[in-house]
Design a binder for these strands. Structure first.
Lengths: 349, 349
DNA sequence: GTGAAAGCGCTAACAC
DNA sequence: GTGTTAGCGCTTTCAC
């Protein structure tokens, strides 16, 4: 572990180039109005000295950090159960990088961490925050608001207090669910069941709503509660099969759930998709492609969600962001942006 | 997106408490030698004003940031193919949090990003770096070294230039592989094949070495090259079966590979584990538990690796880290720390 | 034990 | 166009 060498300052560069600090500063920050000859001298001096601006000094005066916090509750979300969060992070990272912003990752494990996150956010270390809030009673959002930091949420926040300045990005869970169920009805299926996710998460609630949109008159018993895990999918599938031995289709709230359901169906001697058609949600590759048969499922643009979150935040921060005509973001302050989903047909339905 | 309110400064607190800035600074930084009465007054003022230190100002003088960069090459590693990296991140985050350090995530997509990362690291924004370097020819390590930032590597670096100041944390890939293969021989298997990972990654190379440790005299044909994906596992399994229709066991370099192998075995009418026993590596839950049959595999303490990386870095940074008697880290500057692996028995072998 | 004062390295008015 | 100067908010000698 090497020691950090003393780094050259603006002053040093100025001296070497024979100009004032102000001029060096202008050149370094790409300002206009410096004669080419001088600018070149400065650039050469920067090069020779290996000068790198001291961000702390800069932030102290500009009050900008070019850094954004990404806040996620680790145990409660499925952050680490699947690559979902990782993909969002990737999208966020790409977008932030493109605009020279750093990504500060704040993972919370429990209540003790909330105070810490609040303090950090309030501490003015970052210019904004990207917050993943998937639970109805998540304390994080309130906290972030209290900190007074510009924020974009990932996933539709559960609370809805009428404030229209809450910016969030979500994928079209409800529409995706509708598409899935319609696909099933299109296949001629008539006894279609749904295994939900944990209904305190808006994504799960929205998918259930989408199911109901299409199957408004379905028996209540055709909806079984799952928890986004394959074990939960197994349990729910058993329940459903016990109640409705003649069901011919299942829409599972996510791919893991579908994988569990698939196992139970096989165990009970049902052929998929012949006897029972199955559709999942997420298109989580390591799962959806590995099941037997491979899963027909609803794909969301997860990375795109991440990118968009970052973009919206940066835009709100008055950074120079390219206009974004494709995502349907309205001018002004969009409250929520919903990304489309697409049905991916494989063998299970 | 709310605006940031003007925050109170040390000065303001000092005035309110009727003391000097120096005294407030001492109290805030937990220094000794301030009379209790005064300290209390200061703390109250801090509370009332909602004072939070300005980190930029502090860094400017202390030259510390209490921040650590985590650098990972995104497309080349399996960073986002599975929850592996996410779990390490979690471990890292926990440890950093416990020592009041922030985590700055630097994801690189390709060569263009390297310069950026180098600049950032050299820019003195962080006190140290945690670098995931899984490829033999990864440019990142050299870059990080050039930046002169204290660093701990995740995974045994491929290069080995004799410098013993390279600190890294890895899990016992070789030992784990040995355990896996021994398990197979213990089962009475005699024709044991190995599907490797991409051999330019040290983890894959080490697992192959472990296989060879136990099966020194195995036919070269019993080793087929995979790439850590299930598709690669399928291809390799087909090859192996074509060459050795009588093989009775397979050690796959990771769980995804094993999942692919399992599919081909089923397709070819081999019963697992009766005809062919299969062992994977990683214990990547969403895969290992979902395969049919569930996978016997080698588990690594992934989160523990992350924690340990962070701990070693912080220690090298002279932070107050608790002594760590359990992991076998020697005093002084340990070069490489290898975490143990354990065999997890399920149904496939 | 406490305060005064000197910067840390940079940007942004403001002169020239 | 370019230089001068005054801080940004904090820590840290060094007096007292």
């Amino acid at each position: 572990m090497t020691d950090t060498a003393p780094r050259p300052t603006l002053e040093a560069v100025a001296e070497r180039a024979g100009v004032s600090r102000a001029t060096v500063s202008r050149v370094v920050n790409g300002a206009h109005g410096v004669r080419d000859a001088l600018a070149d001298r400065v650039r050469r001096a920067v090069e020779e000295l290996g000068y790198v601006p001291n961000q702390a000094a800069r932030s102290l005066v500009t009050r900008r950090h070019d850094a954004v916090a990404v806040v996620a509750a680790e145990p409660e979300t499925r952050v680490f159960a699947d690559p979902y969060f990782a993909q969002q992070l990737r999208g966020i990272s790409k977008e932030l990088t493109a605009h020279d912003n750093q990504l500060v990752l704040l993972l919370t494990e429990g209540r003790e961490d909330h105070a810490r996150v609040g303090r950090y956010l309030a501490g003015g270390h970052v210019d904004g925050a990207l917050v993943f809030s998937l639970h109805l009673d998540d304390p994080l959002p309130g906290l972030v608001r209290g900190a007074g930091v510009p924020t974009v949420f990932g996933g539709r926040p559960g609370w809805d207090d009428g404030r229209d300045d809450v910016v969030y990005v979500d994928s079209d869970n409800r529409g995706g669910a509708r598409a899935a169920v319609r696909h099933l009805t299109g296949l001629g299926r008539t006894r279609i069941a749904h295994i939900t996710g944990p209904l305190d998460q808006t994504s799960a609630a929205d998918r259930l709503a989408g199911f109901r949109d299409v199957r408004a008159d379905a028996d209540a018993g055709l909806v079984a509660r799952g928890d986004f895990t394959s074990g939960g999918g197994e349990r729910a599938m058993r329940e459903l099969l016990d109640r409705y031995p003649d069901l011919d289709a299942v829409f599972a709230a996510n791919d893991l759930t579908a994988a569990g359901a698939l196992r139970v169906l096989r165990e009970r001697g049902r052929r998929v998709p012949d006897d029972v058609a199955v559709v999942g949600f997420d298109d989580m590759l390591p799962v959806a492609e590995e099941t037997d048969p491979p899963l027909t499922t609803v794909r969301q643009d997860i990375e795109g969600m991440g990118r968009l979150m970052a973009r919206l935040l940066l835009r709100g921060l008055d950074r120079d962001t390219a206009p974004e005509p494709t995502t349907g973001v309205s001018a002004g302050a969009p409250s929520g942006v919903i990304l489309p989903t697409t049905l991916v047909r494989r063998a299970s339905a």
